[in-house]
């Protein structure tokens, strides 16, 4: 029994160690910024991976929840004078409620039909954020007040690296726990065969709704962090391309692998930075690399490599 627990916690410990040790190699605040962005996106991706990798449901509108979280910490303090940390929680709750209400009807849809429904939801959020300029500043966006906790204001990239790092590890643990719970097992059954799960007495609709709500809250917190970190937010945060990017992070890293969520975020945040040396060709190369990864590591980077390494060892 002891051994099983160790096995489970090993990746968490490894990642914690990396997050703690890595900054010693950071030459400047720019690296902290990249690190913080990776961790913030990884948080959203863990949530989405719960939905896609474990429950087998696609969402092409998850950036919508990123947007709700982001604009909560922008509008709340700006218009109502509420403290940022409170708005972050309210935003997460709001995202949860919205996900619950939207999820009830649309999670009955299957496969690509669910994809187009979530896509529509994400677009609706982006359209509202763009049009309600009185509150959101329109397409040019709005500035976001700094997060102040007990008189300490989180300003630099290093501060946000640590905040995002701690939250990501918390989110990681929560996700692991969730997977080991009865809900998690039921979800995997749904992933494998929805009808079989139904026959076995799993309340499929309810479980799917639960996980959709939770994954929305992950995205919302990540969105809030992104807004507080950047200090300025535009409706792009909720856009279609952002949603696609999140899905790409899940799939590249590996569906159903929580470590993969981090790896997917690393690849898609760091790669565009590294590719700038190729100037005009950066976009073409980015597309090519995504294709090559998916062709040769088709189950995603982490699961595919894990299998390969395991094969070599034998």
């Amino acid at each position: 029994m002891r051994k099983i627990i160790d096995m489970r916690l090993l990746p968490v410990l490894a990642i914690t160690a990396i997050v703690v040790v890595l900054p010693y190699f950071f030459p400047s605040a720019y690296y902290y910024r990249i690190g913080a962005l990776v961790l913030i996106f990884a948080l959203a991706v863990v949530g989405l991976n719960l939905l896609m990798g474990f429950a087998g449901q696609v969402s092409l509108g998850h950036a919508g929840f990123l947007g709700i979280g982001a604009y909560s910490v922008a509008i709340g303090p700006g218009y109502f004078g509420a403290p940022s940390w409170l708005c972050l929680f309210v935003g997460a709750m709001l995202s949860g409620v919205v996900a619950f209400l939207v999820g009830r009807p649309i999670l009955r849809l299957k496969g690509h039909y669910l994809a187009v429904a979530t896509l529509g939801f994400g677009l609706l959020v982006a359209i509202v954020l763009t049009n309600e300029a009185g509150f959101t500043g329109g397409p040019d966006g709005m500035s976001v007040p700094k997060l102040v906790l007990f008189g300490w204001s989180a300003r630099g990239a290093d501060a946000w690296y640590w905040i995002a790092g701690a939250t990501f590890i918390g989110g990681f643990l929560l996700a692991l726990n969730l997977m080991q719970s009865p809900t998690g097992r039921a979800l995997q059954a749904i992933h494998d065969s929805e009808i079989a799960a139904l026959v076995l007495g799993v309340d499929v609709a309810r479980k799917k709704l639960t996980i959709f709500t939770i994954s929305a809250m992950y995205a919302s917190v990540a969105g809030s962090y992104l807004a507080l970190f950047n200090g300025h937010i535009t409706p792009d945060v909720a856009g279609f391309l952002r949603s696609i990017e999140l899905v790409a992070m899940v799939v590249l890293g590996g569906m159903g692998s929580i470590v993969g969520s981090l790896v997917g975020a690393v690849v898609l945040v760091v790669l565009p930075q590294a590719l700038t040396v190729f100037h005009e060709y950066e976009q073409a190369l980015l597309g090519l690399i995504v294709m090559v990864f998916m062709i040769f590591l088709r189950r995603g980077i982490v699961p595919s490599l894990a299998t390969k390494f395991a094969g070599w060892r034998k």
């Binding site: 090993l10 990642i15 890595l22 760091v270 982490v302």
Partner: peptide, 17 residues
């Protein structure tokens, strides 16, 4: 293996940057 992979990935990331 995973752990090793992650460390390697992090190191190569720094090299690229």
């Amino acid at each position: 293996v995973l752990q090793r992979f992650t460390v390697a990935a992090a190191a190569s990331l720094l090299a690229i940057l």
